[in-house]
Structures are given as structure tokens and as C-alpha cells.
Design a protein around this nucleic acid. Structure first.
Lengths: 206, 206
DNA sequence: CACGTAGTAGAGCACACGCTCCACAACCGG
DNA sequence: CCGGTTGTGGAGCGTGTGCTCTACTACGTG
């Protein structure tokens, strides 16, 4: 009945990804996106509704891929009864992703989660973003529980440090540059182990 | 001879600082700056020449303060012949700054160095920024030399990790929130020690 | 009391942006 | 072959931006 699509929506996401990696979110404009993707302004808005939604969808596509991989490695280690190994696996996941799919890793490195979910993203994409948030939060709670039998905010924060903030600090620059040195992975492992050896933060008073 | 200033340039920098901390660089506009500082658009441009210059000058003011403090602590430790202590001191410097001058710490946390030196900053401020860069680079080389008798790029990078990237990952969020927990400092110390224990990266082939 | 100098004020220019709007194209059931 | 539905294209609107421009003000000097 209707006119068939002549552009795949993924073409827009691919172009957005390239522009984000090359020039950053601040320089991603509708006009640049239309030119790079070959899809007209009108079509972009017809299928996405706003530029923020394009960005969110591009990020979501890669973040899902990443969290899926990470989760499977973590679950395997947890099933093996080795929570420390699970944390180390999770921490190295960005480097593993960079080995297998550098484009995906580059995108995730060039865009922070907090800049993605704005008021202008379409409701359906926003819902999926929040679902991904929740799934990550659950994974972090699982790790904290397995390590220390605690899942309070402070314990989850310590796990987040190991699994999110330390890898970001140590790997993101090299992923951006396109190569992760083995020595950097060793440093990351050492740092994560050291933080785990510190133990969880003191239990908040109650 | 001329008309005397009725506004101190520092008033503009103060207002810029507040707006940067509260809303981030993306929301700092000339109009908001004029309103908050009470200085007119024309006067701002008369004394700074561009908005980027205001941002750069505000950042420079605080960065100098920070690097001065950091440097003195590091030099003391180096003079005492304890390079590891020097690195730990440098790594904890942002936390120390937050204790003494939370405003300064907040500004440095809200603005990355790489976003500061753009084409639009006035030449004199740009020169001072580059001088600060050079002084930081020299300090990092000194630390690498004292630790490992090496100052090649890879060794300097390892020191940078300890002194810049790890503290950023671990402290910046809490500085933004206004309080650095003791446990976080302990985690930072442990992580830095672990990275130092990894030793320098293998010498690049030559 | 002019005059030169340097600071102040704010109206408004030029531009880039996200987004809207609408004429049109491609398809299918009748 | 028509009408309904959905996708496409791009001109252009409204807005917010950094910055310019110019009239004006306050001072020291001759």
C-alpha cells in the first residue's frame, strides 16, 4: 500500500556514527548528517523525529552490542564462582570490543551516556535507553553482591569504579587512537585488583 | 588620561566560573555572562575579545593556582628522594585543592584542558596556556625520570595515568558533588601504587 | 575648558542551527 | 486507472548565537 523505503534507517545511523567519531557531538548537525548519509532532511525527520533521537538510536545500537558481550563474559565467571574474575572480565570488555569491532568501541568512547538521554529523544527510544540503564545497574548490583554480599549504593559505586570509570580512564584514549597496548591492560588489571583489595567502602550508618 | 575601569575583569571571570560550574560550557553564552556579571556585552568584548578567551582566562587562573600547589608538594617529595611519594602527592592534589578551594576544584573539573585552547582565544592568553602545558609536561618528565630513569613518551604516559587520568576518574565525580570520601582517597592510593608496581611500559624499539 | 584616550552600553547584524511544511513520488487494493 | 497511504525532498521559518558597531561617558592633560 505505502511507498517502500528507499533508505535504510541504518544508513542514517552509520553516517551519524562516523560524524560523531570524527568530530564529536557538538559538530553533528542535521545538514552534515543529510549530506553524509545521502538521506534528505525530510526523510531523517520522518523516521526519527529529532536529531537527539538519531544520536540516541546510534548510541543504543552499539551499547546493546557492548553490554550483551560484557554480560555473557561476566555471567560465565559468576557461574564459575569467581566474582573477582567477573569484575576483571567486565573491566576489560571495552578493550575486547575494540579488538573485535573498533567502530563500535570508538562510538561508545566518543559519547557519554549522560549526553544521550535528553528531553528530545523519541519516547520509544528513551524507553529502551532506560531499560539498558536498568540492566546495567542490575549487573553492577549482582557483582557487588557476589563480591561482598552487599548491594548498597556505596558498594555498587566501588564496583562501578572498577567496571566503568577505571576502564574509561585507562582505555578510552587508546581506543580513540585505535590501538590498546598490552601493558595498558596489565595496568588496568593491577588497578582493579588494588581497588578490590581495598574492599567495599564502610557500611553507611543506619 | 583614559576613563578608568568601572568593572574589574575578575568579575567577568568569576561569573564565567559560576556559570561553567552550574551549567557547563555548552550553556555559557555571552548574554548570560553579561547578565550574571553585570558587565555589558561591549565591555566584555573590549577587554577579552572573544568568549573563548574568557573561558580560557577563567580556566588559566585556576589551573595556575592548582599546578602551583601541586608542584610544590611534588618538589618537596622529590627533594626528599622519594619519587613514589611524589607521584602519590601529585595524584591526591585535586582532593587537596577541593578541601581548600572547592570553587577552584569545581571549575577545573567542569572543563577539560582540550576544550579550552581553541583558535578563538586571544594570542596572549594562548601563549600562557601553552606555557602552562609545557610546565606540566616538564613536571611529568621529571617524575618519570626520578622513578625509572626514563623520560620517553611511554614512561611519561604511565606517569600521566597516575597523576592525571586516575585522579580524574576517581575524584572528579565527588568533587562535583562537593565531598571527597576518605575511602576514595584510599582507593586512589592503592590504584596508583598498583600501576607503579607494574613498572614502566617496555622500552619502545629503536 | 576643549581635547585625546580608553572604557561602557546595548541595539542589531550575520549566520548556523533544529525543525516544519508541503508538494510530490512510489506503491497497492479496488 | 484511481485513491489511499507512506516515504522523499528541500525551501525556508523561527530562534539563539557570537560578535560588531557606534554613540556616549569619564578621566588626565595642555
Amino acid at each position: 500500500m505505502p511507498r517502500p523505503r528507499v533508505h535504510a534507517p541504518d544508513a542514517v545511523l552509520d553516517a551519524a556514527e562516523e560524524l560523531l567519531v570524527e568530530h564529536g557531538r557538538a559538530h553533528l548537525t542535521v545538514r552534515a548528517l543529510a549530506q553524509r548519509s545521502g538521506v534528505s532532511n525530510g526523510s531523517i525527520y520522518h523516521s526519527f523525529g529529532s536529531l537527539e533521537t538519531v544520536v540516541a538510536a546510534a548510541w543504543l545500537r552499539r551499547a546493546r552490542e557492548f553490554l550483551g558481550r560484557q554480560r555473557s563474559g561476566v555471567d560465565a565467571a559468576l557461574a564459575g564462582g569467581d566474582p573477582r574474575r567477573a569484575v576483571l572480565t567486565a573491566a576489560e570488555a571495552p578493550a575486547a570490543l575494540a579488538d573485535d569491532d573498533l567502530r563500535a568501541a570508538r562510538l561508545l568512547v566518543s559519547l557519554h551516556r549522560d549526553d544521550v538521554l535528553t528531553d528530545a529523544v523519541a519516547p520509544d527510544v528513551a524507553v529502551e535507553l532506560r531499560a539498558l540503564d536498568a540492566s546495567l545497574a542490575a549487573a553492577l548490583r549482582d557483582l557487588a553482591g557476589a563480591l561482598w554480599d552487599r548491594a548498597d549504593a556505596a558498594a555498587v559505586d566501588a564496583v562501578t569504579l572498577c567496571v566503568v570509570r577505571l576502564p574509561a580512564a585507562m582505555l578510552f584514549g587508546e581506543i580513540r587512537a585505535g590501538i590498546v597496548r598490552p601493558h595498558t591492560r596489565a595496568q588496568l588489571t593491577a588497578a582493579v585488583e588494588a581497588v578490590l583489595d581495598c574492599g567495599p567502602p564502610p557500611v553507611p550508618q543506619h
